[in-house]
Amino acid sequence: MKTPIAYFLIVSAALFTIGTIGVMVRRNALVMFMSIELQLNGVNLALVAFSRMHGDLTGQVITFFSLVVAAAEVVVGLAIIVNVFRRRRSTNVDDLSLLKW
């Protein structure tokens, strides 16, 4: 007996929502970063679940791509955060508002 798709989707939506709220409310860049990872993984979970439901491997393939992109993004993002912290002694994103008008 297969687990109903709804369960996967509920977990996926929960992960995504937690991630979204995390991005919106937290100001620490590292925490925001982790929240984004949560969002990504929520989406990945939904993709895998739908892939299984349809018996089509395309969703799982896309998930691999998504993981690779996320890894690359983490490398770049963490490097930026480390450098910003070294320079400004802070990871509070509200302090980093130089790129405005």
């Binding site: 919106m24 994103v93 509200d94 980093l96 790129l99 405005k100 008008w101």
Partner: peptide
Amino acid sequence: RRLQTGLVRTYAL
């Protein structure tokens, strides 16, 4: 250009 607040959270929103 006032739209560009420079705050990451605004963009995320």
